[in-house]
Amino acid sequence: MDAKTLIDTNKDEILRQWIEAVYSLYPLETTGFVRTSSDPFGNPVGDMTKQAAAAIYNAITGEDTAVDTVKAALDRFVKLRAAQRANPSQGLGVFYLMKPILRKLLLPQLAKDDLETYLGVESRLDSLTLLAFDMYASARETLADLRITEIRNQHAQLTRWAQKHGVISTSQAR
């Protein structure tokens, strides 16, 4: 079996295992729900995870490596990880949960005659994680910005009024 067919035939199983691995990070009592409901609005976490899984797999196997489309597909998922209560390592570590699965399902068959391809897959996973790291960091920055903007917006008109009356200087306001 050539590498391409192998990658295609194993896709569903790898995605399933990775999604399971991600779900298993949530409190046990709630995984049943993220697992069973397919409503993208009723169960957004499940929907985001599934979308991310497909995007990750397509990217690391070289199917779809255009940075913009990969970013767009991962956006929601990374933002979710960035807003959830976890360390950054925990937030992004989910990407590396793919490795043991790949090593179990793809490596044994590729090791013999196409190790090159397999190593390429793992390298792309590393690049992808770095890409996600950027997105994660920028999501965290957005969160910090939102705090500042919100405080400023809450008193926007008050600030203008205070400037007008010389209570605060214009430079202080912005």
Binding site: L28, E29, T30, F33, T36
Partner: peptide
Amino acid sequence: LLGRRLFNERLRY
């Protein structure tokens, strides 16, 4: 109704 409670983790909880 019983099966839901036993096999649905959310409900078992």
